[in-house]
Amino acid sequence: MLLNAQYGAFLRLSNVMLVLAVMLVTALSFVLPAQAAQPIRLLAFGDSLTAGYNLPPDAAFPVQLEKALRAKGLNVTVINAGVSGDTTAAALSRLDWALADKPTHALVELGANDMLRGLSPEQARGNLDAILARLKQAGIPVLLTGMQAAPNLGADYGRRFNTIYPDLAAKHGLPLYPFFLDGVAADAKLNLGDGMHPNREGVAVIVQRILPQILRFLGA
């Protein structure tokens, strides 16, 4: 009788332990792979600085950024939606096409071509405003990157252009990386012969500098 009672107690304990083990495995199945189960698709929406003008494919900003993010353990695909020569107006006209790639997040890098062509800062502001509103409507979180006007365009133009990015970031409640070319602009060693587009090393500097903010933006 004593042996039977001990055996019964053993079976009951075993069943309890089995139930607890199943509960633990079930809980971990929801917690541990949650990040891996939902990959991030980051839309890099921009102009030649994003597209990788005159660079080998593996040297472009989206490729170097994706490599850096994956090295941090993030399951991220960076979609190269950069088109060389794009103004803010041209980018706005193709935004719905870019959204067909089903991004979960977006990085917006635009305005340099408007500035280089001396186009109206007010028009650039309006186009960027519309782009950000459309992304918000689609439920896509955005990191906005800024551009700075060349000094030769004059103080008035510079003031009207440079305020576009902080103003829109505040209006839409977005994180802002103030200057996409920070640490690279005007450095001949980090640019192609035209002095405007970063070379491979220049892109690497951009990625290194912007990476901490992108990690925060992605919640990593």
Rank of each mutant, 00 (worst) to 15 (best):
H172N: 14
A185G: 00
N162E: 06
N199G: 08
Y53L: 12
G111W: 01
A150K: 13
D86G: 00
H197K: 08
L65M: 14
Q35M: 03
G8L: 13
P62V: 12
L11F: 06
V108D: 02
P166G: 05
E109K: 01
F30A: 09
I131Q: 14
V184M: 07
N162F: 05
N152C: 08
G193M: 01
V205W: 01
I214C: 01
M1K: 07
Y177V: 04
T77E: 15
V25P: 04
G173R: 01
A138H: 12
I79E: 09
A51F: 07
Q123V: 15
D101T: 15
P57R: 09
N4L: 07
H197N: 14
L13Y: 03
I131N: 03
G111P: 04
Q208R: 15
A124C: 09
Y53H: 13
Q35L: 03
R209A: 00
A155S: 13
L110Q: 04
A51T: 00
V78I: 05
V83G: 07
N162I: 06
M196S: 11
V16R: 10
Y157K: 03
N152D: 13
L55F: 09
R216F: 03
Y165W: 10
D96K: 10
A59K: 10
N191P: 05
Y53V: 02
A81F: 07
A60D: 12
A34Q: 14
E109D: 10
G139Q: 07
I164F: 08
L128I: 15
P175I: 01
G85P: 08
F180S: 02
V31G: 01
I140A: 11
G154M: 06
D187I: 07
Q213G: 02
P121L: 02
D167F: 05
G146M: 08
V205G: 03
F61V: 04
A98S: 11
L110N: 01
R125Y: 15
A91S: 15
F30L: 12
A138C: 08
G139A: 11
V142Y: 10
V63N: 05
A106M: 00
L128W: 05
L99F: 07
I79H: 07
A112L: 01
V108S: 04
G126W: 00
L43C: 09
D167G: 00
R117K: 13
D156V: 13
D129K: 12
G46C: 07
G8T: 07
M1S: 12
S48V: 03
V63E: 13
G154I: 03
P121S: 11
A71E: 14
A106Y: 03
L3C: 02
Y177F: 15
F45W: 04
T104R: 08
A89Y: 00
E66I: 05
V22L: 14
V22N: 00
L190W: 01
T87S: 15
L32W: 11
S29Q: 10
M115I: 02
A59R: 08
L11Y: 01
L13M: 05
G52T: 06
V108P: 01
T50L: 05
V19P: 05
Q35D: 06
V184F: 04
D114L: 02
S93R: 10
V108C: 02
N15F: 08
A68W: 10
G8P: 00
F179A: 08
P175K: 06
L176C: 09
V25T: 14
K72S: 13
A5R: 11
L168H: 04
E122M: 08
T104A: 08
N113L: 02
A186N: 15
N113D: 07
G73A: 06
V31L: 09
F10C: 05
L143I: 10
L24E: 04
P151Q: 13
